[in-house]
Design a protein around this nucleic acid. Structure first.
Lengths: 349, 349
DNA sequence: GGCAATTTGATTTACGTCGATCAAGTCAGT
DNA sequence: ACTGACTTGATCGACGTAAATCAAATTGCC
């Protein structure tokens, strides 16, 4: 523990290894054409000194810029709008750290569109990309091609096939669904109940996971709560409104509602009209302006949220780290956040 | 939006301003001895080009090292143990970004000890420090002295007097207490209830805030739930156990328990012994091994957590940013996390 | 108009790395 | 011992900034 612990430089390594700077450089930068004996000497010296290359100096030297792209759904989805907004903010902040970020809009749920987008970015020589993924095998080939051209890949919100990305930035949707069920169970205080469940698409792995988690916990721990019906709609707010009203009028004794996917606006409007009993529990996903307002006025009891801003930040730190060939900084697991009326963030979300 | 938008250098600024590099440097680095006219010309050019100095190059040039210190309670508190553990991890990761971190252990709740510690670090010429604060005016003078010596200050977990720090990294404890009440209310499903509340010290502003938030929500939204008694103990686990058993046997119809502070081990042991009714709600703060186990086996219903690892990470990014005189990156508000049995992180916490 | 003080320009070194180049060295096989 | 292939050493010029020096130019003041 010396006083002025200057970190060792590559020069120090070369000197200790008894080789020239050039040779040490050849080793650490994998330039090849080095005798095994020298490689060993250099690696030993690296180990011994605890040398890590000074990334700032390295990037300065090669005037490195981080060229990143984010492939994600756009348009009318308020969740992704929130994500975009934060990404823009982060991008303008990082502009002065030589990071440039392109946002590539992709149609939601559409494998072909995503496949196509991947091929487009493959031509643009990005250093790293973040993809809101789909668990479809058609993506494996183009993604591997991308990787072979030197582009690093992380998946965001929804995972890709394991082999295609270096990290997944998102929550465990099984846990999210389980948590919803737990809250709903708590809200029934041991009493019986009937729940209406709405889901965007059961093809989407995240929705399927949530529903499965939800089911499991109800069965295991709250058998007196029954799932009256699972309504599938492709995140359509208007459809949600209609079907919810219908289910409400045709189903007896509904005590709870859980929306696995999007389309919360329609659900909330329906809830406001419905003549709910005093003990009624409604749980949705994603904190967006309508759900926030509904939490505040008591129409909703809880919203499970992924904290998309945090996910964006993580994706960015991760991408920068892996582009630099550095181990990612220690970060605790992303947790499905449970929002109630009282722990909402101050900023208008 | 040109193709290869190289960021402008100080040389570009100087050229545009019609002065020499040396003069531009004098302006941006506040070295003085520059005519007002030149200052204005340079600043205009900076604005016009959107120049921001290349921090990597700057730090390389002056071989900058970030000397940071964390002043926080140590010893037997499992919450701070968790915090320490993560800080060590982060420190060893950042060692190779020229960041050195010293942890200074301070007695919890002790103003004199904190005051003394601040004076000690004042002699060590740190670039920045993070302090688990106390809202005491005795700290104002030494903290200002510190700041005048060029040390940047952020408060962590518990705030300092406003004027003494540049940022506060921590949750809003009012929201935390309110959330606890909301969950407890939900768990009573409109029925009546009596709650036992335990608190570490009402002098600690965070505990006081939590209790006040808790009270407010119960009064406003769940008037049928009554606070049977508020037991104050200085986070003593054994005392907690004893007093909880006593309160339990002397109070009729207790339906819920809320622990505002530490000492959860004692509470959990008591809960396990107590013959609780089927619908019973227990809520605590801080996810630590005992509370995690208690959530898993159903002894506890919810734990409100600050995510200390995230707080550490934020404090570190913030400190680095302000030491570099840069605006901090956009980060969403820290939210009291609600943990139930089902959204616990995988890692053993 | 002249002296001193202030302001400016020009230039240099250093920071640690990358990506080159070029000459010199080693070694195997013939 | 000679060729050709591989291996090494030495060195150089970026990258953008900090920090310093010294000489030159511009000011203010009487």
């Amino acid at each position: 523990m010396g006083r002025n612990m200057r970190s060792p430089t590559l020069n120090d390594v070369a000197r200790l290894a008894g080789v020239s700077y050039a040779t040490a450089d050849r080793v650490v930068n994998h330039r090849g054409n080095v005798a095994d004996k020298s490689v060993r000497k250099v690696l030993t010296a690296v180990e011994q000194l605890g040398y890590v290359r000074n990334v700032a100096a390295a990037n300065l030297s090669r005037s490195r810029t981080y060229r990143l792209a984010f492939l994600m759904p756009g348009g009318s989805n308020p969740f992704f709008e929130r994500m975009h907004a934060h990404l823009e903010k982060a991008a303008s902040h990082l502009k002065h750290s030589q990071v440039s970020i392109n946002i590539v809009i992709v149609d939601a749920f559409a494998v072909e569109a995503l496949e196509q987008a991947i091929e487009v970015v493959a031509g643009a020589d990005y250093d790293g990309i973040a993809i809101v993924g789909l668990g479809n095998d058609r993506l494996v080939a183009p993604l591997n091609a991308l990787r072979d051209r030197g582009t690093r890949i992380v998946s965001l919100v929804s995972d890709l096939p394991d082999s295609c990305r270096e990290h997944y930035v998102g929550i465990n949707n099984l846990k999210a669904g389980r948590s919803a069920a737990r809250l709903m169970g708590m809200a029934h205080a041991g009493g019986p109940g009937r729940a209406l469940v709405a889901v965007g698409s059961l093809d989407a792995p995240d929705h399927a996971d949530r529903l499965q988690g939800f089911r499991t916990v109800l069965e295991e721990d709250f058998p007196e709560i029954e799932i009256a019906s699972v309504i599938e709609m492709r995140d359509q707010s208007a459809l949600m409104h209609r079907m919810m009203m219908e289910a409400w009028s045709t189903t007896e004794g509904v005590s709870a509602v859980y929306n696995v996917g999007a389309g919360n606006e329609g659900l909330i409007d329906a809830l406001r009209i419905m003549d709910r009993p005093r003990r009624f529990c409604s749980i949705v996903h994603d904190l967006i302006p309508p759900t926030r307002r509904a939490l505040e006025d008591g129409t909703l009891d809880a919203a499970i949220d992924q904290r998309p801003e945090i996910e964006i930040n993580r994706a960015l730190t991760l991408l920068r780290a892996i582009v630099d060939d550095l181990p990612p900084p220690p970060m605790p697991e992303l947790i499905p956040a449970i929002f109630v009326r009282d722990n909402l963030p101050d900023e208008t979300v």
